[in-house]
Nucleic acid binder design. Structure first.
Lengths: 246, 246
DNA sequence: AGCTATTGTGTATAAATTACACTTTAATTT
DNA sequence: AAATTAAAGTGTAATTTATACACAATAGCT
């Protein structure tokens, strides 16, 4: 009887071995999402970073990321991370690229999907100030943990490209903004100087700015008019958006 | 004694259970690469598809893909698939996007990284004609297996965009080509008609075409001059490539 | 009241894009 | 050998788009 039981149990072991080897042979890998979260504050383009939690990268900063759960889509995971960190709302989120070098993570094979997100710093100052979470000037970013430097650079390049093709920048601004703020934003993202008159001409020609009949407050000079971006109108405009050329 | 052995064996089972649950709890997922392989033949843009190997998608076509091995990078996996299928050589390969909907694969969670590749059909007619592997006109693609329709459409859109920004199209042509062939290619990819004189002007102005002082053979009309693309010169040209606007 | 800093505005020039038609050439047919 | 065919090769004028640039108006500050 016991012999019989033993045999049964040994069969079970075989089954488990099979399962285990199957699990391995299916070639599964760990999958994470890393978010490159851009903000705009004090006329500088910023990126949100956290102190690395790995000893190996003790003094380095890293992007905000987490493993993707088995029952969670990729976009979903990115939204979750953003929500946890910034409180979410009206944000731009876009997949950038997937990074899958075999040894990109020191502990084990982890493939990561990078997402780029644009948030309005005014609206999201909430759950940011604790832990080791900080906004950094994009032009001061060097030597991030893991391959995050490369991920950041890829995302920043893509942002520069996208922002010339579509009016995304508005996600980074408060709802009401002056044309000077808008131009500062473009100059910060693209790291170039633009002609003020031509810049205005271009944006008015696009016809997505709504004059709010309000003016700036508390500026030590002639205040500018305030505008909002007509997102609905932009969405409706079926004519292909050919781009913003500078 | 047997009791003792039994206990040991039961402990082993526990261990296996732990391993199994660990493997699951690390949230690993299966990762695949799918290649959208474009070719150009008979003045049509084509995509290489294979008959689906899943019963569920028995009569449907699917992209060429495979699981990524644990010790294999993503680009590496894409090159491997291409090599296996077409014999490789001088090809354009670029990551497009990663698709990670939880239920995109009927059997289990499989996240897939899509790659776009451009090959020269003349050079690669090799190991293609067996199995259920065929070139399809891009404008006849409907209802692919899995979410491959979406992956294909995303890749095709990206190709249309890229080809306006960089002179990629040459990867799809033979080394020697006439300007008519080049224009046919652009018209096929973008699905538009172009003015012949302006098209020529544009490409000569780019200055990446080398006149081979040869002419077409076996055409029932005045033969055109043959050119090759000066890839090295294009690479060297440090001036940012601002794009090809039509 | 005067100073300061920035807003708001228009035009002339240069560059790029578009539209468009006739002559040339090799192969094929008669 | 002459005529026919089909596409190659070529330039210019008109339009659109992008660039360069300067001065008057305004609110806040002293």
């Amino acid at each position: 009887m016991v012999e019989h039981k033993l045999e049964a149990v040994q069969n079970k072991i075989k089954t488990f071995k099979t399962i285990q080897s199957e699990v391995q042979s299916i070639n599964k890998v760990a999958l994470s999402v890393d978010c490159v979260i851009f903000g705009f504050d004090e006329n500088k383009l910023k990126v949100l970073l956290i102190r690395s939690d790995l000893k190996k990268y003790q003094d380095k900063w890293s992007l905000l990321g987490d493993l993707v759960s088995p029952n969670e889509g990729l976009d979903e995971a990115a939204y979750r991370i953003l929500k946890q960190r910034t409180g979410l709302r009206d944000l731009f989120l876009e997949q950038v690229q997937t990074f899958g070098e075999v040894d990109r993570h020191p502990a084990s094979r982890v493939v990561t999907v990078a997402y780029c997100s644009l948030i309005n710093v005014q609206h999201h100052k909430l759950n940011i100030l604790d832990n080791e979470l900080h906004w950094h000037d994009v032009d001061s970013i060097t030597d991030l943990a893991f391959d995050h430097q490369k991920i950041f650079e890829t995302s920043y390049c893509q942002l520069q490209k996208r922002v010339r093709e579509h009016p995304l920048g508005f996600s980074l601004l408060p709802n009401k903004f002056s044309l000077r703020e808008l131009q500062n934003l473009y100059e910060a993202i693209l790291n170039i100087k633009l002609d003020r008159r031509n810049f205005r001409k271009k944006f008015f020609a696009m016809d997505f700015l709504v004059d709010l009949n309000e003016i700036e407050k508390d500026v030590p000079h002639r205040p500018g008019k305030l505008y909002r971006f007509d997102y609905a109108k932009y969405e409706r405009s079926t004519k292909k958006w050919t781009g913003i050329a500078f």
